[in-house]
Nucleic acid binder design. Structure first.
Lengths: 192, 192
DNA sequence: TGATTACTGACGAACGTTCGTAAGGGAAGG
DNA sequence: CCTTCCCTTACGAACGTTCGTCAGTAATCA
């Protein structure tokens, strides 16, 4: 499908140059088209952008939501660590996560509220899922915290910090060091 | 000084629209000038941008570096927590921190390496300072970690995550919850 | 007077977008 | 099988606007 090729090229340009910095002619050029031809596939720049955004949001949501379902590994220590590794690898593999990170924090102004709502909705679902997980581990006395909201919040912070390090494109050693450090302190912090 | 007014307006536009999205005419309009008049004060857009960047870098560096000097509070628990609160309040007060965050993670492409080097240099200084602090607390047995690099890395991650929450402009409660959660787990994680 | 600052005017380039049009393919009907 | 019709896709040309930048010229102020 040609539309998918366009979206893929658009994803790349949006995530490296932002909404304003990405040009339709460059995107078209990448798939061997003139910029006018994009209008046979999308209403306008916003339409293309929003379709890319929704694809990225879906990846973000589904990968995180389904992560704990598809593994019967009951140990929170291994699960949570594997979650971080999954985020890291997915981020390096799929450009949609980088796009999602950039756009959710620095959206184009005229789409600020629209994007804000979508991001909020997804983040809340992830938060709820994590809270439920932590509550479960808490009741089984596999972790030791006051309320499940606290480790959930802190863990999401670690994920954010990890993605920030990833978007910064530092060396693999630096990234791994960040991951290991955050994880080491975090796990000590909730495992008594 | 008129140049300072211009830089202040530029700071605002750069940090809310990014480099590409910020327009010289809008910046000039905000200080009651025509865009051509900006060229009496700056060589071009890059020149203006880089001056704003260096101001922001200096704020970032100086506030963090001098934080522990000007307080004789020896307790790491109070010092580190106060550091987070300081970052939060400074971020909300001084737009230069928001600018710094956005630009260091998503620089304009043609200044990628230049900015990368400046950011790296500053981050390394902060990291060194934090490592020294953690090493000191470690030797006094006020905290318990393997190597000072680990809590330093983890703590910088918390600062990043906090700023991310701040740039996202969520509610004060959400921000405080994030801060408290991250801090609670972090402190438990390094204090035996 | 000389220097700094702000203006007008204009420049080429790029932007997103619209129009009319032409090529291609599939469906429908003869 | 051929023709007609329609729908999709792509393109050249052009639109109006904005972009950053430069030259020349007033105005301001030491």
């Amino acid at each position: 499908m040609k539309s998918d090729d366009i979206k893929q090229a658009a994803l790349k340009h949006f995530s490296t140059h932002g909404y304003e910095g990405a040009s339709l002619s460059k995107i078209a050029e990448e798939v061997g088209l003139k910029k006018q031809s994009l209008y046979s596939h999308f209403k306008n720049k916003d339409d293309l952008f929003l379709q890319v955004l929704r694809d990225a949001g879906e990846v973000e949501l589904q990968t995180k939501l389904t992560f704990f379902n598809n593994r019967q590994d009951p140990s929170p220590e291994k699960s949570l660590y594997a979650f971080l590794v999954m985020v890291k690898e997915l981020f390096q593999l799929d450009e949609r996560m980088k796009f999602w990170l950039r756009i959710s924090f620095f959206p184009p102004e005229h789409l600020y509220h629209l994007i804000g709502n979508e991001v909020l909705a997804i983040e809340d679902q992830v938060r709820k899922m994590l809270e439920a997980k932590f509550a479960e581990w808490m009741s089984k006395e596999q972790i030791f915290v006051e309320k499940p909201r606290i480790p959930a919040s802190a863990f999401m912070g670690i994920v954010d910090a990890l993605m920030i390090e990833l978007v910064y494109d530092s060396s693999p050693e630096r990234i791994n060091e960040k991951l290991e450090s955050a994880w080491t302190v975090f796990w000590r912090g909730i495992s008594k």
